[in-house]
Design a binder for these strands. Structure first.
Lengths: 333, 333
DNA sequence: TTGAAAGCGATACCAT
DNA sequence: ATGGTATCGCTTTCAA
């Protein structure tokens, strides 16, 4: 018997019970493999359920068995390999706990982010991810759900953040470049927010610490194309620049391309060091040197903390909610 | 007042009602912005809700307002850029419909896939994605939920599949190589299943159609490393091979690397054409020629069909459930 | 404007 | 082994 044709009302446990000539409870027993049920009865119920195309309501079930946990993962752009890696790590950590993950890609758009925030709170037990709008707005929209922010500061009963600490890593990178004789190190920062990024601050501090003048900085879109055109512009204005640090690996890969186009050999004529530590960096030519983040533990940490916030377990403290970056030298610088 | 400290029972609408001195229905009105409520009453309720840290139960709410739709997206490996692209497309299509997407990464593991199948049916309204196990097993485990399979055949009331048709694209690729004078075209197939892949069949048919002898085929892991070592092995046995077609772009990128290591210039000494059309292919050196799939419409199509299966709308027919591949020549071949 | 009562669809507990 | 009843937390009539 095929499942009802058109315009079908939902098949409930009641329908199955009636069809099999038993009570609802018996149906429940049969479906959930509880004992205490006669073999033939069970089979009859199962047959009836199949024939009717019965599917338990996840809502009704969730209401009484309060077990399933779902977390919302908010990502600005899944196609950006960095976020892909974080997402994959979060999925893995969640799976290990038997949690379900609802993924929302906000497409780098403030509107989409707002839309997501509006619906997400009613669908999940905790939220993890990246946001661009003011914390108090996030707080308002997430109404009571625990939130773990990545690369953003906010600590309250309900909010936690994972801090990305690249200070040492960036200093190591700049020190390395300086030791190689580079005097003019430029940077490609990202143009997302109004102010310069924290990574830029690390860069500035590191160059100063090496006794170098502040190198030229150019802000650009957080993409391969952004890095490509920004480096061309930067080099046009500052041909003396012989080394480059970028906000992230994607932009660095764009810079590699621009360098090739401009006839600058890497690392001989231009040393390039990115930030993030993407796997992708090993695939380009030359393999990209980078200040690497452990994206895996980043995602895992976020999920772990969400769990603690959720169960009222002892939340991790600021010192534990940090992911440190470290210099990973390959061939580009 | 901070949300209760330890071991807190769930705060229900009832608690809020009592705390605000009104009935549950009034609370519901206040929270859902229904009219018919006095301004001050509403404010009092809202305050009480906030003070108690009240959050509506998604299960209870879902039970009565049967509106929210969730689909499960099953992906073998989110870090594989091809699947990332499909996932991103599916997320986008789902968002446009206001659906929620639960993502499951099965880590290329049969066990994880089984585990996912066991829980997914009770959490979503429809399932979309990639599976490796036999259809009847999938059917059994998904108990009544509509399923859209990608790159897999199965059509019933409840199952649909999106077919990937690369026949013309592969023929165009091989024809192009033959026209360029290549007589010995090798292939790197993937080693996932027991039999050769469909893509291999297209390859074989295309070489035959061009009047060439069947080229050597080597099976390898579906990864950069897999492609890298497989090409080395293939070339060692068949040094006459001057052109290569691969199961996918990732393997082709591995092949590019191996070629460089072996001192074979691409495309001069070895022409390489991949399959998938990844954005990634534009970043390597030289940019990868490929038989490209429109991953965006692949994901969108899957979601669209899931919607039709779900609402009982007229499902798309086999002719519409196809994504065709086309040759995209860049510089590697 | 507010409240009482009746479900939504399932499971758990207690009888029988 | 099976059925009755209460219950999960919320929204939706329908009265007042």
């Amino acid at each position: 018997m095929a499942p009802s044709g058109t315009e079908s009302r939902r098949v409930t446990i009641h329908d199955v019970a009636r069809s099999a000539g038993v009570s609802r409870q018996t149906v429940s027993r049969a479906l959930n493999d509880k004992g205490e049920i006669h073999g033939s009865t069970k089979q009859r119920v199962l047959d009836a359920a199949l024939a009717l195309g019965y599917r338990p309501s996840r809502f009704a079930r969730g209401l009484v068995r309060q077990d399933t946990i779902s977390v919302g993962l908010v990502i600005p752009d899944l196609l950006n390999p960095f976020f892909t890696e974080v997402a994959a790590a979060a999925l893995e950590a969640a799976r290990a706990r038997g949690w379900h993950v609802l993924v929302y890609d906000t497409a780098d758009s403030a509107d989409e982010e707002r839309g997501t925030l509006e619906v997400i709170a009613s669908q999940v037990d905790a939220v993890v991810g990246y946001f661009s709008r003011p914390e108090d707005e996030i707080e308002k929209l997430t109404r009571g759900v625990p939130v773990v922010l990545i690369d953003r500061e906010r600590r309250t009963d309900r909010f936690s953040s994972i801090r990305i600490d690249g200070e040492d890593g960036v200093r190591a990178a700049i020190t390395h470049l300086a030791a190689a004789g580079h005097r003019h190190i430029g940077m490609l920062d990202h143009a997302g927010r109004a102010e310069p990024s924290v990574r830029h601050a690390w860069f500035a501090a590191a160059t100063a610490a090496c006794g170098l003048d502040a190198g030229p900085v150019r802000r650009a879109d957080q993409s391969v194309e952004g890095g490509e055109s920004a480096l061309a512009a930067l080099l046009a204005e500052h041909p003396e620049v012989s080394a480059l640090f970028t906000f992230n690996d994607i932009m660095a890969i764009g810079a590699l391309r621009a360098a090739r186009r401009l006839g600058r050999r890497v690392p001989r004529d231009l040393a390039v060091i990115g930030f993030d530590g993407l796997r992708l960096g090993t695939l380009v030519e030359p393999p990209l040197s980078t200040v690497a983040l452990d994206t895996r533990s980043l995602g895992a940490l976020a999920v772990e903390q969400a769990g603690r916030l959720l169960t009222g377990g002892e939340p991790l403290g600021p010192d534990e909610l940090v992911v440190r970056a470290e210099l990973r030298l390959r061939e580009s610088g």
